[in-house]
Design a protein around this nucleic acid. Structure first.
Length: 886
RNA sequence: GGGCGAAUAGCUCAGCUGGGAGAGCAUCGGUCUUACAAACCGAGGGUCACAGGUUCGAGCCCUGUUUCGCCCACCA
C-alpha cells in the first residue's frame, strides 16, 4: 500500500503550485468568442491602496465559488478583476508619504503630485491583487482593469459629456459637505453620522432698542460669527412682538433681524434659533427663503477667516472655546447643557464635516433613478436576499442630486474648460483647445476631479471596452451576478444600475447577492482607513486557503455581522485534513485498480454501495440547489456532513471488510465505488476548496477527463445509480450497529473487546437484510458471535436494545454486571416512555386528529406504534432482569 | 425621528413554505481499532429574550415589550 500523497496535508506548497499552474495554463481566461453560455461577474474593485481584509476575503471567496461552479457546469465564465483608484484614500496615502519626507503636495505642484501617485501605484499599489491570488481567486487577470486606465477614463469622459449634454449634469452654488482636512467636497453618502457627546450652549442676544434678550440654543457657538438672523416660529406668541425687530449680534457687533419661519420647533430649547446660512443646512434653506446674507466665516481648512473679526486665524474649535469664554465674560452665556447629537464625519479621515458654501458639479439623478427603480421592481435585476430591495427603494425614492466634484488632484479631471474671453463653459470629450462658444483659446480646465464612485458606476461596461461596441460586451453584458456587501448598496450598486440603464439600455447585472459584513470584535465595520483589519493572509498561512474559504462559505448566511472565530477555522482545517486522510486511505487501496476497467453503473452493488451513492446523489442535488439560491452555508454544511459523516464515518469503514477480504470481485466492486464517490466528491468540493481537491484529484489513478479538476464537469446526480430501497436496507443495518455501539458505550465496554450479539427479528425479511449486512455488524459493532433470526433462542442474561423491527440482545455473561444493565434499561425506558406519552396524548386529542393532515397523522401513529413496541420489549427485559436478581 | 437586523446548548452560530429543537467547538465517559489522536465510539446539556394572540399544533405567523447592533434623516 502506497500513495503519492504525503502523510499530512501541507497547504502552502500545494496552493502555490496549483495556482501558478492554473494561471499559466490560462484556465481563468474567458473567451468572448466561445459558444458556451456566458456567466459573468465583475469584481467589486478593491482600492488600489487596499490590503486584503476579511470583507474582501468573504466577498471574493463567494465570487470564486460561483465562478468555479459555473465554469465546471459548462458556462463560459468571465470574472473581471481590477482595482479602483480611490481618489481621496489614495491621495491621502501619498500625501502622508510626502509629509514624512518633509514635503507637501502644494510644494510639489499638481502635475508632479499626480505623477508621484502613479509611481506609487506602479511600485506598491495593487498588492491586493496578489493577495486575492493567495485566496485562490480565479479571475481573468489578463483583463485586469484600473479605473484610471486610458480606456476607463475615456468611458468616464463619454459619460460625463453625454450627461452634460442631456442636462443631467449642472453646477450650483450650494452648501455642501466639506472636509477641512481633505480639502474637498463630499457627497451626502460620504458623510458618516456619529452620535457624539457635546453641549448645547444657550446664548443671549440683546434685542436692539430694548433691554430684552433673546436666548438661542446652539451646538456650535462659534458659528454665531456668521449669524445673519434669529428665527422664531410664526405662531409663537412669546416672541411675536419681536419679529421684524433686530438683535445685536454680540462679539461682532452686527444688527441682524428676527424672522419667523415654520422650521423652528417651539418645543426645542428656547424656541429661538440662530441662523447661520453659510454653515448649517437648515439655516441655509431658511436663509434662502428669507433672502438672508450668507456669510462664510471659515476658510477651507476650517480656520476662521476675515469675517470672523477678532477670531480670524483661529481654528474652529479654538474659536469655539474663545467665543464661549468671551460671551461668558460679557454675561451673555445663559447656560450650558450636556447634549448628544449626530455629527457628520468624513468617511475617509473621520474629520468633522463643515457645511460649506461653494460652487460644485452635480448629477441630476431623478430621471436616472426612475429607470433603476423600475428595473428592480420588474425583476430585471433581482436583489438577494430580497429584504434589501426595500432598503434600495427607500433610498432611491428619496434620492438627492449627487455632488460629483472633488477638490483633490488624484482622479478623473472634469472635462470642462472655462473661457477667459466669454466666460462660457466648454465640455468636451477631447481636451478642448478652443471655446465652443466664442472660439477663444484662452481656456482653463476645471481643476476639480470626479468622485471616485463616478467611475465605479461605469465598471460593468467600462471594463468591457465601452464606449466601443466590443465583442466582450456583446457576450458578457449584462453580467450574471454582482456579489457585494450592503455597505455599498447606495454608493455603488444603485449607481451602476442607473448608469448601466442610461448608457447600455440594459441592467448591469441580473442578480445582486448581498452578503454580510465582517466586523471586528467591537462590531465595528472593518475598513481600509480605520486600520482595524485582521490580516486574512495570516489565516491562510496558519490554516490554509481551503479551510479559510470553507469557513467563510459556512458563515455566509449570517444576517449582517460576521465575527470570525478562529475556532471555526481550526474546525474546517480539521475537515480539510479529514478529506486528505480519507483520500490517502482510498489511494492506498487503489494501486491495483484501473478506473477505465470498471463502471459504477455496470456493477452488481451491495447495499452499502447503494447507500453511499444515493447519499452522494442527494449531496450533489442539495449543493446545486443551495448554490443556485446563494445559500453558501447550506452547501458547505451538506458537503461537510456528507464527506465526514457519510463517506468517512460509514462507507470507508464498511469498505474495509471487502477491501481486505479474500473475495476479489468484492474488492474490485468496493474499489470502484470508493474511487467513483471520491472522484465526484472532489469535483463537488472544488469550488469551495480548490487547492486540496486539485492535489488529490491529480493523484487519483488512471486517466482523468480533464487536465485540471477546475476544467472537469461539476457532478451531475443523474450519473449515479440511485437506489432508495437499498439505502434504506443499509440504514436498518446501521441502526443495529448504532444500537450495539450505544449499549457498549453506555456500559463502558472497551472498543477492543469483542462481544456476542443475538438479533431477534420480527420478520424473515428483516432477518435477511441483517444477514446481508452481517459482516458490517460484526466489524463495526465489534461482534464475534452473531446470531440472526426470527424467534431465535434468547440468552438468559442479556442487555437489550431495540432498533426498529429488531431486538438486540447482548449476552451479559462476563460482560458487565446486572446492576449496570438495570440502570441503563431504566434510563432507556424513561426515554421511550416519554415518547409514548407525547404521541398518545397527541393522538388522543380529537381536534388534532380532525385537523391535522393525513400524512402528519400517519407519521405520528407510526411513531407511537414504534415507541410502544420498543417500550414493551424493554419492559420485558426489565422484568427478566428483576427476576434474575431475585 | 423613521427603517432594518439580531436575541436558540457553556461558546460561535444553523434552523427554507408552522408538524416530536440542530451543527461545530467545549464538557463528561471509553479508546493509539493498520486513512486520520487535527482521530474514533458513546453520553450529558436548551421555558428557542419576555408577555399576549392566531392555530389541532408556534423557534417559525400576528401584536406589544426589553436588550444589543446597523442604516437612513436638516430638529438648533
Amino acid at each position: 500500500m502506497q500513495t503519492d500523497l504525503n502523510k499530512s496535508y501541507e497547504p502552502a506548497e500545494v496552493e502555490r503550485k496549483w495556482y501558478q499552474l492554473w494561471e499559466a495554463a490560462g484556465y481563468f481566461r474567458a473567451d468572448e468568442h466561445a459558444e458556451r453560455l456566458p456567466y459573468a461577474i465583475v469584481i467589486p474593485p478593491p482600492n488600489v491602496t487596499g490590503v486584503l481584509h476579511m470583507g474582501h476575503a468573504l466577498n471574493n471567496t463567494l465570487q470564486d465559488i460561483l465562478c468555479r461552479w459555473k465554469r465546471m457546469s459548462g458556462f463560459e465564465v468571465l470574472w473581471m478583476p481590477g482595482t479602483d483608484h480611490a481618489g481621496i484614500a489614495t491621495q491621502n496615502v501619498v500625501e502622508k508619504q510626502l509629509v514624512a519626507e518633509g514635503a507637501d503636495r502644494h510644494a510639489l505642484g499638481r502635475d508632479e503630485f499626480v505623477e508621484r501617485v502613479w509611481r506609487w501605484r506602479a511600485e506598491s499599489g495593487g498588492q491586493i491583487i496578489e493577495q486575492l491570488k493567495r485566496l485562490g481567486a480565479s479571475c481573468d487577470w489578463q483583463r485586469e482593469r484600473f479605473t484610471m486606465d486610458e480606456g476607463l477614463s475615456k468611458a468616464v469622459r463619454e459619460v460625463f459629456v453625454r450627461l452634460y449634454e442631456d442636462g443631467l449634469i449642472y453646477r450650483a452654488n450650494r452648501l455642501i459637505n466639506w472636509c477641512p482636512r481633505c480639502h474637498t467636497a463630499l457627497s451626502d453618502l460620504e458623510v458618516e453620522h456619529e452620535e457624539k457627546r457635546g453641549h448645547l450652549w444657550h446664548l443671549r442676544y440683546p434685542v436692539e432698542g430694548s433691554d430684552r434678550f433673546l436666548v438661542v440654543a446652539t451646538t456650535r457657538p462659534e458659528t454665531m460669527l456668521g449669524d445673519t438672523a434669529v428665527a422664531v416660529h410664526p405662531d409663537d406668541e412669546r416672541y411675536a412682538d419681536l419679529v421684524g425687530q433686530n438683535v445685536r449680534l454680540p462679539l461682532v457687533d452686527r444688527l441682524i433681524p428676527v424672522i419667523a419661519d415654520e422650521y423652528v420647533d417651539r418645543e426645542f430649547g428656547t424656541g429661538v434659533v440662530k441662523i447661520t446660512p453659510a454653515h448649517d443646512f437648515n439655516d441655509f434653506e431658511v436663509g434662502r427663503r428669507h433672502g438672508l446674507e450668507e456669510i462664510n466665516i471659515f476658510d477651507e481648512s476650517g480656520v476662521v477667516n476675515a469675517h470672523g473679526g477678532p477670531y480670524a486665524g483661529q481654528e474652529r474649535y479654538e474659536a469655539r472655546a474663545n467665543v464661549v469664554a468671551d460671551l461668558e465674560k460679557l454675561g451673555l452665556l445663559a447656560k450650558i447643557d450636556d447634549y448628544q447629537n449626530a455629527v457628520g464625519e468624513c468617511y475617509r479621515c473621520k474629520t468633522v464635516i463643515e457645511p460649506y458654501l461653494s460652487l460644485q458639479w452635480y448629477v441630476k439623478v431623478g430621471p436616472l433613478a426612475e429607470q433603476a427603480i423600475e428595473a428592480v421592481q420588474t425583476g430585471r435585476t433581482r436583489i438577494v436576499p430580497a429584504q434589501w430591495e426595500k432598503t434600495y427603494f427607500d433610498w432611491m425614492f428619496n434620492i438627492q442630486d449627487w455632488c460629483i466634484s472633488r477638490q483633490i488632484w488624484w482622479g478623473h479631471r472634469i472635462p470642462a474648460w472655462y473661457c477667459a474671453d466669454c466666460n462660457e463653459l466648454t465640455v468636451s470629450r477631447e481636451d478642448a483647445t478652443a471655446c465652443a462658444h466664442c472660439g477663444g483659446t484662452a481656456l482653463r480646465q476645471e481643476t476639480d476631479v470626479l468622485d471616485t464612485w463616478f467611475s465605479s458606476a461605469l465598471w460593468p461596461f467600462s471594463t468591457m471596452g465601452w464606449p466601443e461596441r466590443t465583442v466582450t460586451l456583446a457576450k458578457f453584458y449584462p453580467t450574471s451576478c454582482l456579489v457585494t456587501g450592503f455597505d455599498i448598496l447606495f454608493f455603488w450598486v444603485a449607481r451602476m444600475l442607473m448608469m448601466g440603464l442610461k448608457f447600455m439600455d440594459e441592467v448591469p447585472f441580473r442578480e445582486v447577492y448581498i452578503h454580510a459584513l465582517v466586523r471586528d470584535a467591537q462590531g465595528q465595520k472593518m475598513s481600509k482607513s480605520k486600520g482595524n483589519v485582521i490580516d486574512p493572509l495570516h489565516v491562510i498561512d496558519d490554516h490554509g486557503a481551503d479551510a479559510f474559504r470553507f469557513t467563510l462559505a459556512s458563515f455566509a448566511a449570517m444576517g449582517r455581522d460576521i465575527k470570525l472565530s478562529t475556532e471555526r477555522i481550526v474546525g474546517y482545517q480539521a475537515f480539510a485534513n479529514k478529506l486528505w486522510n480519507a483520500s490517502r486511505f482510498t489511494l492506498m487501496n487503489l494501486d491495483d485498480f484501473d478506473p477505465a476497467g470498471s463502471d459504477l453503473r455496470q456493477l452488481e452493488l451491495a447495499d452499502a454501495d447503494r447507500w453511499i451513492l444515493t447519499r452522494l446523489h442527494e449531496a450533489i442535488e442539495q449543493t446545486e440547489q443551495a448554490l443556485t439560491g446563494y445559500k453558501f452555508n447550506e452547501a458547505a454544511g451538506t458537503l461537510y456532513a456528507f464527506t465526514w459523516h457519510s463517506f468517512c464515518d460509514w462507507y470507508i469503514e464498511l469498505a474495509k471488510d471487502d477491501l481486505y477480504g479474500a473475495d476479489a470481485t468484492a474488492r474490485l466492486r468496493v474499489q470502484t465505488v470508493l474511487y467513483g464517490a471520491l472522484e465526484q466528491l472532489l469535483r463537488l468540493l472544488h469550488p469551495f476548496m480548490p487547492f486540496i481537491t486539485e492535489e488529490i484529484w491529480q493523484a487519483l489513478p488512471g486517466q482523468r477527463p480533464a487536465a485540471s479538476i477546475m476544467l472537469a464537469r461539476f457532478p451531475d446526480g443523474a450519473d449515479l445509480p440511485v437506489d432508495p430501497a437499498g439505502a434504506a436496507r443499509m440504514e436498518q443495518v446501521m441502526d443495529v450497529v448504532r444500537a450495539i455501539r450505544n449499549v457498549r458505550g453506555e456500559m463502558d465496554v472497551p472498543p477492543g473487546r469483542k462481544i456476542a450479539a443475538v438479533l431477534d427479528c420480527k420478520s424473515a425479511a428483516t432477518a435477511g437484510i441483517l444477514e446481508q449486512g452481517s459482516a458490517a455488524i460484526r466489524s463495526l459493532g465489534k461482534v464475534d458471535q452473531l446470531t440472526i433470526g426470527v424467534g431465535v433462542d434468547r440468552p438468559e442474561q442479556a442487555a437489550t436494545q431495540v432498533a426498529g423491527e429488531v431486538e438486540i440482545l447482548l449476552p451479559l455473561a462476563g460482560l458487565v454486571d446486572i446492576a449496570e444493565e438495570e440502570k441503563r434499561l431504566a434510563k432507556e425506558i424513561a426515554k421511550v416512555a416519554k415518547d409514548v406519552e407525547l404521541f398518545s396524548n397527541k393522538l388522543r386529542n380529537e381536534k388534532f386528529v380532525a385537523n391535522a393532515p393525513a400524512a402528519v397523522l400517519e407519521k405520528d401513529r407510526g411513531k407511537l406504534r414504534d415507541a410502544e413496541e420498543k417500550l414493551a420489549l424493554l419492559q420485558e427485559s426489565q422484568r427478566k432482569i428483576e427476576a434474575l436478581k431475585s
